[in-house]
């Protein structure tokens, strides 16, 4: 049983619930992750005029603006997300990149930026943030290859690259295998490859949190993840692939 005196300040209440103490301070919060609060706390969308100065220093992701709010006031507030494990992390003059759906809240002393990797956000600076994961978080050191679905984020190391298992992907049979799964695809042909010094954060399941509808990268040349607009690209049709169509095989044969 908890009351405002016994609730921890900026710490976990249980593995699934985190308590934030506000003393006239502000926290950035993903929409709808507050489950209860004591005291007087106000939640404002980022479009609120008064927050302009705060946004200039700590929020640089216009595409996620509609997912985030600022909580300010005094009191204690409980955060939780679909009964997933919730953990807080401290950054000290560091940087950390995390899947956009996993980040719940952060202190404004950190700056939030959109990572160059689509669907990820980068936090830079000093402060505390709260993240959710499906099962407890595991910390690993590069060099390391991880399953794309198990990746939560990474700190201090360079962005990952894609890695494909070679044996599976060469030749005509490899192409057929990659496209159809016939002939023994293990489902683990594709990994993210981390090198350099740093920490990689993994969750202990491969079940992803639902992607947020917003947060797509701008349609601009040179931006990874941007879908080529009509007219750009090299004459590739952007029609959805029909079942039975050979897909990328034609490109292997140079057609």
């Amino acid at each position: 049983m908890w009351d405002p005196m016994t609730l921890p300040a900026d710490d976990n209440v249980n593995p699934y619930t985190f308590c934030v103490e506000l003393k006239g301070s502000q926290w950035f919060l993903q929409k709808g992750k507050m489950i209860a609060y004591y005291g007087s706390i106000e939640f404002n969308g980022l479009g609120h005029g008064r927050l302009d100065r705060l946004l200039r220093t700590s929020f640089h992701s216009p595409l996620h603006a509609s997912d985030w709010v600022v909580a300010e006031g005094s009191g204690k507030m409980l955060l939780a997300d679909r009964a997933f494990d919730v953990n807080s992390f401290d950054l000290d003059e560091g940087n950390l990149t995390i899947r956009a759906g996993n980040l719940l809240a952060y202190q404004p002393s950190l700056a939030l930026k959109q990572s160059i990797v689509p669907g990820f956000l980068t936090l830079i600076g000093t402060g505390k943030f709260v993240a959710a994961s499906n099962g407890p978080v595991v910390f690993m050191e590069p060099p390391l290859r991880v399953d794309p679905q198990a990746l939560v984020g990474w700190a201090d190391c360079p962005s990952p690259c894609h890695h494909y298992d070679h044996g599976y992907m060469t030749g005509i049979m490899g192409g057929v295998r990659a496209l159809t799964g016939l002939g023994g695809a293990s489902g683990e042909e594709h990994q993210f490859d981390f090198t350099g010094a740093g920490t990689v954060l993994l969750q202990s399941t491969e079940q992803l949190m639902p992607e947020l509808a917003t947060g797509a990268t701008p349609h601009e040349a040179g931006v990874p993840g941007a879908h080529p607009g009509p007219g750009s690209g090299h004459g590739q049709q952007s029609m959805p692939r029909l079942p039975g169509q050979l897909g990328d095989l034609q490109r292997r044969f140079g057609l």
Binding site: M1, W2, N14, T17, Y38, G39
Partner: peptide, 22 residues
Amino acid sequence: SDGPAVVLRVTPQYPLSVDPGA
């Protein structure tokens, strides 16, 4: 409950606001 419930005490000095979904 979906996930272990947190029991919060309400006293006259400390009213509580709760998200209807939780």
